[in-house]
Amino acid sequence: MDGIHDMGGMHGFGAIAREAAEPVFHADWEGRALGLLLQAAEGMGFVDDHLRSRIERTPPDAYLRLSYYQLWIRALETLMIERGVAGAEEIAERVAATREGGRAPGGSDLSLDDMAAMVAAGASTKRPDAGVPPRFSVGERVRVRNDHPFHHTRAPRYTRGRVGEIVIDHGIFVFPDTNSEQQGEAPQHCYAVRFAARELWGPSAPPQDSLCVDLWDSYLEPA
C-alpha cells in the first residue's frame, strides 16, 4: 500500500526534534499500551504483519498527527473489531464509562524474571526448515519489481524499479504481503540488497554512498 507510512525519501518534514534524557515512556499510558499490545498479540493471535497493515490504513492526516503508541492503540482497536473481540460501540461505551483509577484487576502472580524469560525467547518469523530454495545468490544484481499493491507490502516505494546487488541472504522468512492478509505465510528467502545512492536518488546523491534494504524473493527479478 502506497500510504503515508512509506516515507523514505519524502521531503518537507523538517528538522529532527531530539529530546535530551528521554524517558522510556512519556506517560503511564504509553507503557500500558506497549504491554497491552504484546499481551494482546499473544491472546488474540496476531503478529506484527497484521498490526502494521492496520496502522498503514490510518488516513494520512491522522497518521501524521498521532504518536506511534497512539497508532498502535488505534490499530489494536481495528483488530479487535475485525475479529469480533469487541464492537466499535462497545469500545466507545467502555471508554466513556472509564474513569481514572478504574484499573483492570491483576490476573496472575507472574514475576519479572518469568516475564524476562518469556520476552527473551522472542517470536521469530524465520522459517529455516521451510526448505524453499533461494532464487538469487550473493553478488547477483537484481531489480525490484515495479509493483504497487493495495495491500500491505515491505518493499519501500523508493526501491521499486531500481537495481541493486544482493549482499546478504538472510534465510527464509514469513512473507508479509500474504501473511498480513490471512493468505498464508508463503515463506521465502529475504535478502539485503545494496543500492548505490545515485541509483535511488539521481545525480544529486554522493557517488560513494549506498543504501541496504531487506527485500523478499517475490519483490525481485533478475537485472
Binding site: 504491554g35 499481551q39 490476573g107 514475576s111
Partner: peptide, 25 residues
C-alpha cells in the same frame, strides 16, 4: 482512559493479563 478501557475489555475476555502488562513495563 482509552488504553485503560481497552485493557479492561481484553482482560475481561481473558485475552490479556494485567499483571503481565505490569511486568512488561
Amino acid at each position: 482512559l482509552r488504553v485503560r478501557a481497552i485493557e479492561q475489555l481484553l482482560a475481561e475476555k481473558g485475552l490479556v493479563d494485567p499483571t503481565a502488562i505490569d511486568r512488561l513495563v
